[in-house]
């Protein structure tokens, strides 16, 4: 957390600013290994560093909810799998997100869903990494919304890769430090393949 990249959003001082929801494909989110927090305040947001070059406190994703599962006895929570053209998002909603949990509980699979949520990285006892999204809201949407999202996510991914290549990404030093082996071309190809699956 040492090196300085300026925050990607304007104005840290003077008032609360809501963190925007990044558009990320499942195949990229799955590769996240580094999360950090700026500032020592209890309320300061936690960011997951996207390998394509941007910090991310919130994501917006649209895909197909293929599976959902109720878990826990006393602390009930729901897990779900949301599939996009590149892979699978793991989403969850617990009793701390009662509204999101009720929304998720009501949805019958399969369905196109739009999810707003906060990503975080977990490490399992055997050393594997798992990136999961804590749901803030989940709604059933139509195919057109899904298609619009694929375009949006592809555009955002390409924007991030370009900013990183041009050195204008504020978190570029962090990327070098934490994802030294990653080739941004991977994500360009991923975006292309996702777009190719959309039929107009």
């Amino acid at each position: 957390m040492s090196n300085g990249g300026a925050p990607s959003q304007a104005k840290r001082d003077g008032g609360f600013e809501r963190e925007p929801a990044r558009r990320v494909f499942a195949a990229e989110l799955r590769e996240c290994r580094y999360q950090f927090r700026e500032g020592d305040d209890e309320k300061s947001p936690t960011f997951v560093l996207l390998p394509s070059g941007e910090r991310c406190n919130r994501v917006f994703l649209v895909g197909t909810l293929t599976e959902k599962q109720r878990q826990g006895d006393q602390n009930i929570f729901y897990r779900g799998r949301v599939v996009d053209p590149t892979g699978t998002f793991f989403v969850m909603a617990g009793s701390y997100q009662p509204e999101a949990m009720q929304q998720l509980a009501k949805i019958d699979t399969p369905a196109f869903v739009a999810v707003v949520g906060k990503p975080s990285i977990y490490q399992t006892p055997d050393g594997a990494f798992l990136v999961s999204v804590r749901v803030e809201s989940i709604t059933v949407v139509d195919r057109e919304t899904r298609d619009l999202w694929v375009l949006d996510a592809a555009r955002s991914t390409l924007d991030r890769i370009d900013a990183l290549a041009q050195g204008t990404a504020p978190d570029a030093p962090r990327i070098k430090e934490h994802y030294p082996a990653l080739d941004p071309a991977t994500f360009r190809k991923m975006a292309y393949e996702a777009l190719a699956q959309i039929k107009i």
Binding site: D147, A191, Y192, I200
Partner: peptide, 18 residues
């Protein structure tokens, strides 16, 4: 609304430098 022009432009952008 979904615009096919946007889709084509993005495909070109993503594929162009691959």
């Amino acid at each position: 609304k979904m615009e096919s022009g946007d889709h084509t432009a993005l495909l070109n952008r993503a594929g162009g430098a691959a």
